[in-house]
Design a binder for these strands. Structure first.
Length: 657
RNA sequence: GCCGGGUUAGCUCAGCGGUAGAGCAACCGCCUUGUAAGCGGUAGGCCGUGGGUUCAAUCCCCACACCCGGCUCCA
């Protein structure tokens, strides 16, 4: 065909199209459904607008709105629509950046006169956005010179700053999504009234959008700099269909139902009394029993793992934290000093310095290494008021903290066995999906020589590689004294939580002058591993509560079984069954038949009890119970002894009953 | 710490410049019940704390505490 071009498709086939055809034409030629779902194109590996003309020989993949990439484009385009709406409604507003993010997008603005957004403004903005969508404005790309771009955005100082930074090569990641760089700047024009700096791609026209919701307003610092201007941010979400949007909103509702703060109140587990102060929790009996079970399990595993238990005080002389370096690096995050007659004392923010003192208290032999000290150590950190978040960010918390002192030869083996240990303990709490991250040195926030850091980092790397686990690298994310492996888990609804940490430290042993006597009778410096599995017991409890949605497995449930008589005739038997369960080491109770059976069962279900045992005349006669398990089928006529055996089997290995 | 929004009964939440309401829970009766809400009644609140404006403040203003959503930070 004269004047035609041929492009290839991902399945290996190729298509001929008229000169000047775009991916949109290609999609239409393949099918109208595809054309409707298409939002962008990947041409020779680069994302482009659907409307960009294709040239002969290119390979093209059509990006549809139901893919991650497609949703990213939808969200970015919706962010532009929101910016246009805000600029229309708030004349004089300055707009800054508005990227797509996981599940949505945001855009940051500076409103005239320091005005701020209210929830009511969101309604108005959303309404204006719907009008822009209805107008089906095309997204028209243009490349302009820097000077022209600066003229175009003459009244938009933030845009000018972005243009200048990009063209001067000072751009960081946050600019990369906005402009293409190089000699030209790309812009997208939606109408005569709205043009935004942007690398793209975008959907062909605003009519492709519309399944969005504006979620919340928030303050945000320009470029994340807390000394910079405070901008006004609007968060939104956008999806390819109403169905997908509704599903997302439904997921948010479900996540909210699992919120550990809500469940903690509902289930009477713990509370944060205002009188106590922010970020400090009190544990109620039902929360405390779950916590105790977690801690007991942890202690047993550590005992089996060759750890020795230690206890250390909550306060220490400031000299200790000068030696360790904590005062230098984290003074602002520590509770303020208490002046006492023989010095300045601080609540401890970490246990490691005290464990170093235990190590140093007498001469150590290589025969003692690896020496593994373990403590459930409560620490206090002054978290800034705005950062507190239920149990997940708290000012007083307990670390399942261990410090392992070993020789350099033992290091890699020790780390590798720790990887197993961590995963094995986390599995007991129902986590199946683990991720590993290696955090490396930040030269501005660390102590010690390059050589030491290199040895520590390669030990961690080698252990993971030998162990065959994949890992991501987080540059500059290490602790000040050494690099670390952080382990995250995925919970029941797919969220990631960073829990465990294994940190390699050549520095504190040096700072504390730790030594052991080696087999050749020389004195050597041990290496120290810091590690925590739960991290913070409080935080882990919060994560666990959300993971299980409050429905703790039988070994952790505050009450494992409740016995209910059908009528008050059977209350005495119900009580005797409860006694038998308690005698067998289980946590059980019974409730008198003052309400109808259905009501009492409902109450027990609302409390998320693993087992409800209903007993009536048949059961009194036969010594049985009717077993109503959480999420299972009722089984009548189960002998009490068999229920006890079954529950024992179910909780074996985890229960310490 | 910064921006915004909150704080009303044990819980979830209405309400309003003239000192308050619902549902659930609690308590008391009646009902005697076989697997997720029986009926009736009673009680319960210095409307977060302290100032201010007002004849009058739970309501309007200010400060503080705490909470929520973000930002920043997180050994």
């Amino acid at each position: 065909m004269p004047g035609s071009i041929t492009v290839s498709l991902p399945d290996g086939s190729s298509r001929s199209l008229a000169q000047g055809s775009s991916t949109l034409d290609l999609a239409a030629a393949i099918g109208s459904r595809l054309a409707a779902a298409a939002v962008a194109a990947e041409v020779d590996g680069a994302l482009r607008d659907l409307t960009a003309p294709l040239t002969d020989g290119q390979s093209v993949r059509i990006v549809t709105s139901d893919s991650d990439e497609g949703r990213h484009v939808l969200r970015h385009s919706t962010a532009h629509v929101m910016a246009q709406a805000v600029l229309r409604l708030f004349p004089g507003a300055k707009f800054t950046i508005g990227p797509a993010i996981e599940d949505g997008f945001y855009y940051d603005f500076e409103l005239p006169g320091g005005r701020t957004f209210t929830e009511a403004d969101l309604e108005a903005v959303a309404g204006e956005m719907r009008a822009i969508v209805a107008a089906d404005q095309p997204f028209v790309r243009a490349e302009v010179g820097v000077d022209e771009a600066l003229r175009m955005f003459a009244d938009q100082p933030y845009k000018c700053e972005i243009i200048e930074r990009v063209t001067s090569g000072a751009a960081d990641g946050s600019d990369a999504g906005e402009v293409s760089g190089g000699g030209a700047v790309s812009v997208y024009r939606n109408s005569d009234a709205f043009v935004d700096l942007c690398r793209g791609p975008h959907v062909p026209a605003t009519g492709r959008l519309g399944h969005f919701a504006l979620m919340k307003v928030a303050g945000a610092y320009w470029r994340g700099n807390e000394r910079g201007p405070m901008l006004q941010r609007i968060y939104g979400t956008a999806w390819e269909s109403k169905k997908a949007l509704d599903a997302h909103l439904h997921r948010l509702e479900e996540a909210e139902k699992r919120d550990h703060r809500r469940l903690a109140t509902e289930m009477d587990l713990l509370s944060f009394p205002a009188e106590l102060g922010g970020g400090l929790a009190v544990w109620h009996p039902k929360g405390a029993i779950v916590r105790k079970l977690m801690e007991d399990y942890s202690r047993r595993r550590h005992q089996d793992g060759g750890y020795q238990f230690v206890y250390t005080p909550h306060l220490a002389n400031g000299r200790l934290f000068e030696t360790s370096g904590h005062l230098d690096f984290y003074r602002d995050g520590m509770y303020p000093a208490m002046e006492m007659d023989n010095g300045t004392y601080y609540p401890k923010p970490m246990n490691c310095p005290m464990h170093c003192l235990i190590f140093r208290e007498r001469q150590r032999s290589y025969r003692e290494l690896p020496l593994r000290l373990f403590e459930l150590g409560t620490v206090y950190r002054y978290e800034r008021a705005g950062t507190l978040h239920g149990l997940l960010r708290i000012r007083g918390f307990t670390q399942d903290d261990s410090h392992i002192y070993c020789t350099e030869e033992q290091l890699t083996d020790e780390i590798e066995s720790l990887l197993d240990f961590v995963v094995s303990v986390l599995r007991a709490f129902g986590f199946e999906d683990f991720g590993f991250n290696l955090s490396t040195r930040d030269p501005d926030k660390s102590v010690g020589s390059d050589g030491i850091w290199e040895r520590a980092t390669s030990a961690l790397r080698e252990a993971m590689e030998r162990h065959g686990v994949g890992y991501a690298v987080k540059e500059g994310d290490a602790a000040f004294y050494g690099p670390k492996i952080d382990i995250d888990v995925r919970d029941a609804i797919g969220r990631k939580w960073q829990l465990s940490t294994i940190q390699c430290d050549f520095n504190l042993p040096e700072r504390f002058g730790l030594e052991y006597v080696a087999s050749d009778n020389t004195r050597r410096r041990p290496i120290m591993l810091h590690r925590a599995l739960f991290g913070s017991v409080e935080r882990f409890f919060g994560v666990l509560l959300e993971h299980y949605g409050g429905s703790f497995p039988a070994w952790l449930a505050p009450v494992q079984a409740r016995v209910l008589g059908v009528t008050s005739e059977h209350d005495a038997y119900a009580e005797s069954v409860r006694d038998a369960l308690v005698a067998a080491g289980f946590r059980a109770d019974w409730v008198a038949a003052d309400e109808q059976l259905g009501k009492r069962i409902r109450s027990a279900k609302m409390e998320r009890l693993p087992y409800v045992l209903v007993v009536g005349a048949d059961d009194v006669r036969d010594g049985t119970v009717g077993v109503n398990p959480r999420g299972g089928e009722v089984v009548r006529g189960v002998p009490v002894g068999r229920f006890i055996d079954d529950l024992r089997a179910e909780t074996a290995g985890t229960s310490v009953a």
